[in-house]
Amino acid sequence: MDATAQILFGGLFQGSLYAMMAVGLALIWTTIGVFNFTHGVMMMLGAYIAWTLSEIGLPFALVLPLVIVVMAAVGWALQASVVRPLIGRPNIVLVVVITTLAAASLIENATLEIWGPRSKQLPPLIAGNTTILGVGVSLHQIAIIVIAPVVLAALWFFLNRTRLGLALRAVAQNEDASLLVGLNVKALYGLAFAISAALAALAGIFMGGYRFMSPVMGADPLLKALIVVVFGGLSSVSGPIFAAYLIGFFEAICSYYFGLYWTPALLFAVLIVTLMIRPEGIFGSKSRGLA
């Protein structure tokens, strides 16, 4: 019973974080067709800005929306500076990888300059611990397990049930046709980056509440998000969400039975087998488009 509960909580918790990260990557890939390597530093930057805001004494209820707004603006600006000018280039995928990698290095080093190397920690969303099913868990983790699906459901609702979400899905499928029904394609590209950065920042705040923050804290979550989107397919937003939880549970099971050390290797082995059988991912389809 103990094992089941531990795996259940571990899987739900990791899966929630991975889903928050992976969805943002997939959102940008499906709408613009580029891969955003600044996604990890966006997460980190969100956590650092939250730290500064709570240091100056703002209540957390105010910090959270502020960070989301600021990071959405950062995402928009990033898109306008290192992605939009390159649209239409024949080798755009590769060039955007470079510009976003360079931007990531820039933000990472700037963070080090501004905030210094000393590690920091954010206050948890809810302080304290509890015991559920005989397993001790922090309330912060419980909060994340509850909040993440709500956020993801809100994103799904936005994409599938609102006019703006519909426009975002349309741009992903056919740019010319989008222009001809009067969509503002450039603004929608900016919106995709803004939403993606806001989601990453939220994940950063979640992570900064239970682990020490450092300028490189986004690297591992970015890697996991990459694995998740490869696994779940890049062609939708729902695919990576399922894949994120699947991988979260896989990791929880692996680290329970084989230890933390073997988990990355096993994960990679599963990834390779998946790609050899289904190159487009388990939940993927060959088309590019949000759903």
Binding site: R169, Q173, A177, G289, A291
Partner: peptide
């Protein structure tokens, strides 16, 4: 303008 050979939005 309805363009030629319009693929429109395949997944909508």
């Amino acid at each position: 303008h309805v363009p030629q050979g319009n693929r429109l939005f395949p997944d909508l």
